[in-house]
Amino acid sequence: MNLKLKLSNILFLDIETVPAESNWQNLTTTTQELFKKKTSYQRKEETTAAEFYERAGIWAEFGKIICISVGYFVLNDEKNQFRVTSFFGDDEFKLLSEFKNLLETHFSKPANVLCAHNGKEFDFPFIARRMIVHQIPLPKKLNLFGKKPWEIPHLDTLELWKFGDYKHYTSLNLLTSILGIPSPKDDIDGSEVAKVYYIEKNIKRIVNYCEKDTITVAQVLLRFNNQPLLEEKDIVNV
């Protein structure tokens, strides 16, 4: 694709979300009614809102973020090194504040961009909405008000793959398969995150899954640009 971007200017990321409450009964009556109305279009007639609540994590109004994994390139001995770190836990305000601090201290320059797969439809707006819920002032990289399309510092590997075809959706897993990239889906997938979080209480497993997706987004962008893929020795957890 001949993308005119320095790899070191890109912050790759992925988020994992779950329903805000562990079960339907914990919601207030008002929230239950609002969820029913919000999901009436998506639900099949025979599926109740209570049964559908396990999918509430896909809406920022009814879900919460439990992990944001980020990755970035640094030049080390003339070779690209990819460093990965995560903000995670039960305290969404804390992890969002830590992520905001990263954006404002290390990725605040105009040349810096955020990159995710389907990030423009999910990750970026979800993070921004949850920050507003927690009354966290939006960092510049997420505050899009008044910006022209070409001024928005967001890169989306799904959008790049569409090549202007707005009807086309390709999952990250499918892209890895056709591009010859190791799949990140070797343990759990997105549909299992809520169970792992609320029932297994295994946040470390979720963080590992999230970080693999972040690494994979970087690999996809490298393949788009006909650059060598990262090897395991090039990836460092910090």
Results as ranks from 00 to 15, higher is better:
S97G: 02
Y72G: 09
L229N: 11
C67K: 01
P139G: 06
L34D: 14
I68T: 05
W161F: 11
P19R: 00
S183V: 00
L230D: 08
I206P: 00
K38G: 01
F12C: 08
D77K: 13
N2P: 00
E121V: 11
F107G: 08
Q219D: 05
A128T: 12
E54I: 13
V217T: 15
S40V: 12
L7M: 08
W24F: 04
R223Y: 03
S177K: 15
F99H: 02
F35G: 00
R130Y: 07
K6S: 15
V236H: 09
E78K: 13
S69D: 10
I66V: 15
E54Y: 01
L155G: 04
N112D: 14
I152G: 07
L155W: 09
R223T: 02
S40M: 12
R83Q: 14
R43T: 02
K204I: 05
Q42E: 13
L144F: 12
N237Q: 09
N202P: 00
Q42V: 12
E98F: 02
E61D: 15
L34C: 07
P184I: 00
L27T: 05
K4L: 12
N118R: 04
T170F: 11
D165K: 09
L222R: 14
N76T: 11
L5C: 10
L175A: 09
P19G: 02
L155K: 11
G63W: 03
N173D: 15
V70N: 01
N112Y: 08
I66Y: 03
A111D: 12
L155H: 10
S171R: 01
L75N: 11
F52A: 06
F35R: 00
I58Q: 09
N80R: 02
E54C: 09
L158V: 08
V196A: 04
N101R: 15
P110G: 09
L75C: 05
L114T: 03
D77M: 06
G180A: 07
A50P: 03
S183C: 11
D165M: 05
D234H: 10
Y209K: 02
R129K: 14
D187V: 00
I235M: 03
E21N: 03
V113N: 06
F82W: 06
T39A: 00
P184T: 00
N80S: 11
V220R: 04
K167S: 08
K147C: 06
H134A: 02
K141D: 03
R130P: 07
I188Q: 10
Y166T: 14
A128Q: 04
I127A: 04
L7A: 05
A111H: 07
H117W: 06
A128C: 06
E33M: 12
Y166R: 14
W24C: 03
Q42W: 12
T39Q: 00
E78C: 13
I127Q: 01
K38S: 13
S69G: 14
N2I: 13
A111S: 14
S69Q: 10
M1V: 04
K201E: 15
L142C: 05
K167F: 05
D234F: 11
N76D: 13
D14L: 06
F12N: 06
E121L: 14
G180P: 07
L3Q: 08
G89S: 10
L175D: 02
D91Q: 13
D165L: 06
A194M: 03
K148Y: 12
I235D: 10
K4T: 00
E51N: 11
D213G: 07
K94E: 09
T47I: 15
E98T: 02
L102F: 10
L5A: 04
K44H: 12
N143P: 02
D14W: 07
P153R: 09
N118T: 02
K162Y: 09
